[in-house]
Design a protein around this nucleic acid. Structure first.
Lengths: 139, 139
DNA sequence: TATTGACCTTCCAGTAACTGGAGACCCTAT
DNA sequence: ATAGGGTCTCCAGTTACTGGAAGGTCAATA
């Protein structure tokens, strides 16, 4: 299979597939004309990668997961650990964004957003933290 | 003021402050010895940048916000628009992460995480989307 | 005076995970 | 022969820094 077909099947751009080969995540064969020649197992692997990436796993996580997937004897605990660490990262990120959202949302609500120049958003950004009024609490 | 003092005052690493000068966000003077010489207004600007970045505004957002801050005649609507667009980006990101979290959390719960090799996490990643069972719903 | 040590300078490279584009080759159909 | 589409490699750019090397400056000390 050529790279275009695989791109269609896996949903990954051809560019990305070439990149994954560069960094050693897949190793397609080569046809006599130099074109990459993908086996079913390569397509399977790429689809696996696409789904793992969609779940936000890093490339290095994906590399580990692929290894674990290939090793039918490994303990499921190993996989679960990677997933749980990732889950923690996701939770941290959500918490961080939620806090940002709260602060920013307060500011946006406080801003008239009309033709006048007075703007609580800029005022807050320009205010020393210890003198701030709308800024998030210190704990 | 030298860069070290400004770093302490603004909470930004010296490296970052130099970078901000590189990309034109601040323009400190120079002492005769070649050291950067920061005015109060520079410190103020850097603190502004630090707070805007902490709220997740991009550097380009920050550039716009600084311009708007300097322009005392602009309408607050201009600022509010930038903030609202950013708020939308934050909301999208939160939604995306929340969905990831849900899927991943299901998988983690379903995985025994013991010495046995059977692992629903890998099983799901390896499964064609149309044949998946735990994967997120299609709507 | 010489020397330490902390500070400052510039420049280069690397990070994560791609993405875009140039220039050239291959294949099929007309 | 030619047109088109697909493919190849290689290089550069993206975001917002961060680390490190090699070297200049300054204040204090032996």
């Amino acid at each position: 299979m050529n790279i275009g077909d695989v791109a269609d099947l896996s949903g990954l751009p051809a560019k990305t597939i070439r990149y994954y080969e560069d960094i050693g995540l897949v190793e397609p064969l080569r046809s006599s004309n130099g074109y990459r020649s993908f086996r079913q197992s390569d397509v399977h692997k790429l689809a696996f990668l696409g789904r793992a990436r969609a779940l936000g796993f890093t490339i290095e996580d994906c590399r580990s997961l692929l290894k674990l997937y290939a090793d039918t004897d490994r303990a499921s605990a190993e996989v679960k650990q990677i997933a749980e660490e990732h889950l923690d990262r996701i939770d941290s990120k959500i918490a961080e964004l939620t806090e940002m959202r709260a602060t920013l949302s307060h500011l946006v609500d406080a801003c008239a957003g009309d033709h006048r120049p007075d703007c609580p958003i800029l005022a807050d950004l320009a205010t020393e933290p210890n003198a701030g009024s709308i800024s998030k609490a210190s704990g």
